[in-house]
Design a protein around this nucleic acid. Structure first.
Lengths: 205, 205
DNA sequence: TGAATGACAAATTTCAATATCTGTCATTCA
DNA sequence: TGAATGACAGATATTGAAATTTGTCATTCA
């Protein structure tokens, strides 16, 4: 049961395991301490509260889930295709999690619901990745002149329907792929360099 | 207490009142019957179940909330401005409901959560309104050639962040207005007629 | 005769007693 | 001496017995 000294890392690993096995509603810090073969008081020497422990576990998960997206964001793919790839990967990751292991995903969601801070930071990092793709596209002339940060937020918002877990109940319905693809088409069209001049058939009155 | 004959309409009105006063968790069909001065068995002569009654109340609310949007959708405003107006009104309606009377909104949400059918139909009607604006814009040359139904869905999805009640916790944060405006700009840009030809600075390799 | 009633069974909710958990801290241990 | 313990108070969760609610239907009423 016990192994060398008690570190935050070991506690974190045990907490993750307990959370996975018992679910967010049943996992107690006594369980975590038991898994480590120590008293629950010892856990409180390293984490100020149960909430802090859960927060730390969540941050770990978020960091791991973000890595593949980071790779896409910094790839050499032409910006429009890269942007499409990035959003597709974001959507696919969430989808796989929800549909593949719903219990684990429910656990993640329960933690996320309490950790506004961690989630806000995570969203910020996601939007930075999008902004970096946009900046590259503006530089290459693939995208029109725009504020990368503001446009990144708009894109992130616009696709929320396909990556925000609150909508996961829709993700296995027919037509989802097509709808997502349609949306990306529309958004990419909106990012394309502006045409010469808008032509109106009816004169403005 | 009692008044002429018992009709579905009178039951519906009483149910709405009871729901408003007691909330969705406390309102019972006995309460509704009591408000009408009849036995609860009589209510079941007109509605097959409590769920059916709640569903009918929800449909009434949805129909009423939809009316102002319908007016915008069929107005003579040029399609791009009309579309912007329509989405702004949609957002504003939801926002006013949530922020103005949170309890009533919670009631509405509780009913909506159980009535998948009614909600799906409502979403369909909303998208038809959007599609009608798009069709007008295609005809006038304000929008590029596109499938109104598919694009309507994409627009509805893209703006979900600003009208889907699951996001209502974000609606009173600073920067929301700007973010919404940004998103509409991007979407309208995506609907605009296509430019002559895309110019790339880097040649494709 | 057709609408309304109210007694009833089954399902669901409430509520209070009981048990468990979180977080602290004086004490022990190595 | 600094990490670990475990007893403890207050907060939170569980449980199951009692009460309420839903939905039915044989009977009553106008």
């Amino acid at each position: 049961m016990n192994d060398s000294v008690l570190t935050p890392e070991r506690i974190l690993a045990a907490a993750e395991d307990v959370l996975r096995r018992y679910g967010p509603g049943k996992a107690t810090v006594v369980d975590v301490a038991q898994a480590l073969g120590v008293s629950h008081g010892s856990v409180y020497r390293h984490f100020a509260s149960k909430a802090a422990l859960r927060d730390a576990v969540l941050r770990g998960w978020l960091a791991r889930s973000m890595a593949p997206l980071q790779a896409i964001a910094t790839s050499r793919t032409p910006p429009p295709a890269r942007l499409r790839q990035w959003f597709s990967a974001l959507r696919q990751t969430k989808r796989d999690n929800v549909l593949g292991d719903p219990e684990l995903f429910a656990t993640y969601s329960a933690l996320a619901a309490e950790a506004g801070e961690a989630i806000a930071e995570h969203k910020g990092r996601m939007q930075q990745q999008i902004a970096s793709i946009l900046a590259a596209g503006v530089a290459s002339g693939d995208f029109r002149q725009l504020d990368p940060a503001a446009a990144a937020r708009a894109l992130f918002d616009a696709t929320a329907r396909f990556h925000y877990p609150g909508f996961s109940h829709l993700w296995d319905q027919p037509g989802e792929d097509a709808a997502f693809s349609q949306l990306l088409d529309l958004l990419l069209a909106g990012l394309a360099p502006a045409p010469a001049a808008p032509r109106r058939r009816k004169p403005a009155r």
